[in-house]
Amino acid sequence: MLGGCVDVMLGHRETMVLLLRDASVYGSVYGDETTELMSRGAGITSRAVELLAGPDPDWRGRVRAAQAFATDPIGHLPDVPDDELREELLRGASAILGSTGAAGPR
């Protein structure tokens, strides 16, 4: 199930970034105050991930930091190839859930 969810998110990366990181999407529906709050929240989340990842992390460290903070590693790492990011996301999710096995079946 988790692999399927990751596949859908990776298959629609640009849409996921728009929905999860672009506060202007919510402005027309919820108003300017919500847009401002969403923008501030996205900034706080980005900074928290930076701090959790530590100094000079590689992209895998940034994936773990985003997962630990329960945020969107897909939107934070647009430069990482889908197949590598998928494997790392599932490896991290397995670690968080205490499961064995890395990426599981495709």
Score class of each variant (00 low, 15 high):
residue 97 L to K: 04
residue 57 P to Q: 06
residue 24 S to M: 04
residue 94 S to M: 01
residue 68 A to F: 03
residue 57 P to H: 05
residue 48 A to I: 08
residue 78 P to W: 03
residue 67 Q to V: 08
residue 88 E to Y: 00
residue 6 V to F: 13
residue 62 R to H: 10
residue 36 E to H: 10
residue 54 G to F: 15
residue 1 M to K: 12
residue 56 D to L: 02
residue 95 A to Y: 00
residue 7 D to A: 14
residue 34 T to Y: 15
residue 17 V to F: 04
residue 70 A to I: 01
residue 25 V to T: 11
residue 59 W to M: 03
residue 71 T to F: 05
residue 44 I to G: 03
residue 38 M to Q: 13
residue 25 V to K: 07
residue 92 G to Y: 01
residue 100 T to L: 11
residue 4 G to W: 06
residue 89 L to Q: 01
residue 31 G to T: 15
residue 47 R to F: 09
residue 2 L to A: 13
residue 65 A to V: 07
residue 53 A to Q: 11
residue 102 A to L: 12
residue 20 L to K: 02
residue 64 R to I: 05
residue 30 Y to G: 08
residue 9 M to E: 07
residue 26 Y to P: 02
residue 74 I to N: 00
residue 6 V to N: 09
residue 31 G to P: 11
residue 50 E to V: 01
residue 31 G to V: 12
residue 91 R to N: 03
residue 52 L to M: 13
residue 71 T to V: 08
residue 75 G to K: 01
residue 99 S to I: 03
residue 58 D to H: 06
residue 54 G to I: 12
residue 64 R to P: 02
residue 23 A to D: 06
residue 78 P to M: 02
residue 29 V to Q: 10
residue 69 F to Y: 14
residue 58 D to I: 10
residue 48 A to L: 15
residue 87 E to M: 03
residue 97 L to S: 02
residue 29 V to I: 12
residue 85 L to S: 01
residue 80 V to W: 02
residue 54 G to D: 14
residue 72 D to M: 09
residue 13 R to H: 02
residue 49 V to E: 12
residue 39 S to N: 09
residue 96 I to K: 04
residue 32 D to C: 06
residue 47 R to G: 05
residue 91 R to L: 04
residue 39 S to I: 04
residue 38 M to P: 00
residue 53 A to P: 07
residue 95 A to K: 02
residue 40 R to Q: 11
residue 79 D to M: 08
residue 81 P to T: 00
residue 1 M to L: 06
residue 21 R to Y: 00
residue 86 R to P: 09
residue 6 V to R: 09
residue 54 G to Q: 12
residue 41 G to A: 11
residue 35 T to D: 07
residue 30 Y to F: 15
residue 104 G to A: 02
residue 63 V to P: 07
residue 15 T to N: 13
residue 31 G to S: 14
residue 62 R to A: 10
residue 9 M to L: 15
residue 35 T to H: 08
residue 67 Q to G: 00
residue 74 I to C: 01
residue 7 D to R: 14
residue 65 A to P: 13
residue 91 R to F: 01
residue 51 L to Y: 14
